[in-house]
Amino acid sequence: MAHSLSPECTPLKQAYDACFNTWFEGYLEPAIAHSKNVPQGQRNEYAKKKAEEFEQKCGAVWAQYKECVQKAVRDRGLEDLLEQARQENPLRHPPSTSGGSGSSSTS
């Protein structure tokens, strides 16, 4: 696994990445299958259940890692650059699939 911005965050990052990967690898295939075979309401139930499970399993290590990496971002003077990039293009929702412009893809 890749390193963190700050060496002191690397163990937390790796623990968090491992937790996410395990969860994600269990989540993805059933999520695809559910979306194909099950009515809308039930798929949402699956997503809801798995989102809760992710929080339960990885929430604690995420909180620790996040605190560490936020400090690393500040220490490297990246906070303002990130804020500016977020203002220009928040990307809170998936971009339209037509490709092309990277700007104002929020709908």
Partner: peptide, 20 residues
């Protein structure tokens, strides 16, 4: 050339199942 990778935010949408 990519030496560090950090997640700074992540969400799982419990309605759509989309991971950001």
């Amino acid at each position: 050339h990519v030496v560090t990778v950090d997640v700074i935010d992540r969400s799982v949408d419990s309605d759509t199942g989309i991971i950001r």
